[in-house]
Simulated scan of single mutants.
Amino acid sequence: MAATLTDDEVGKTVVDAEQKELGIVAKVDGGRAYVDPNPSVAEHVMAAVGWEGEDEEDYLVTEDMIASVGDEIVLQGDL
């Protein structure tokens, strides 16, 4: 069963199955997370206060790619 993404995930760190940090969630829309691979300090602060945003360098993570959602989002190892 895939994890459910909500606006509560904005600002969370996304890691791969080996715990390598891939970026932070910049925005959640329709069960998809837009992940910023190189967030600036300002983007970390904006995410921490719940301000969503996306830009052209963000990559898309869908719910079926996620192994777990907790303090961080862990992607499946077989992507």
Results as ranks from 00 to 15, higher is better:
residue 60 L to P: 00
residue 77 G to E: 00
residue 59 Y to A: 03
residue 19 Q to M: 15
residue 37 P to R: 06
residue 38 N to W: 03
residue 30 G to E: 00
residue 78 D to W: 05
residue 4 T to N: 03
residue 75 L to V: 01
residue 78 D to T: 13
residue 70 G to L: 10
residue 43 E to R: 12
residue 58 D to E: 03
residue 31 G to T: 00
residue 57 E to F: 07
residue 68 S to N: 11
residue 61 V to P: 08
residue 62 T to E: 11
residue 38 N to R: 05
residue 11 G to W: 07
residue 10 V to C: 09
residue 75 L to Q: 05
residue 62 T to R: 07
residue 18 E to Q: 15
residue 28 V to P: 01
residue 72 E to V: 10
residue 54 E to Q: 13
residue 60 L to F: 11
residue 44 H to V: 12
residue 26 A to N: 09
residue 20 K to E: 13
residue 13 T to M: 14
residue 32 R to K: 15
residue 11 G to E: 05
residue 67 A to D: 12
residue 76 Q to G: 14
residue 14 V to R: 07
residue 72 E to T: 02
residue 42 A to D: 11
residue 9 E to H: 05
residue 76 Q to D: 13
residue 13 T to F: 10
residue 66 I to C: 02
residue 27 K to D: 09
residue 73 I to L: 10
residue 53 G to Y: 00
residue 22 L to G: 01
residue 42 A to C: 04
residue 60 L to H: 02
residue 29 D to H: 01
residue 9 E to C: 15
residue 69 V to R: 02
residue 43 E to P: 13
residue 25 V to C: 00
residue 7 D to Q: 08
residue 33 A to C: 10
residue 62 T to V: 13
residue 60 L to V: 13
residue 47 A to Y: 04
residue 37 P to Q: 03
residue 13 T to K: 15
residue 23 G to S: 02
residue 27 K to A: 13
residue 27 K to Y: 00
residue 40 S to I: 08
residue 22 L to K: 03
residue 31 G to M: 05
residue 43 E to C: 07
residue 77 G to Y: 07
residue 28 V to K: 09
residue 24 I to S: 01
residue 22 L to I: 10
residue 17 A to V: 11
residue 36 D to K: 00
residue 40 S to E: 01
residue 76 Q to T: 10
residue 14 V to G: 00
residue 55 D to F: 08
residue 36 D to W: 03
residue 32 R to A: 15
residue 18 E to A: 15
residue 18 E to R: 13
residue 8 D to Y: 01
residue 71 D to E: 15
residue 6 T to V: 09
residue 50 G to V: 05
residue 23 G to T: 04
residue 65 M to H: 03
residue 13 T to Y: 11
residue 27 K to M: 10
residue 3 A to I: 06
residue 52 E to G: 15
residue 16 D to M: 00
residue 25 V to F: 00
residue 26 A to T: 06
residue 71 D to S: 11
residue 49 V to Y: 13
residue 16 D to C: 09
residue 29 D to W: 07
residue 51 W to Y: 14
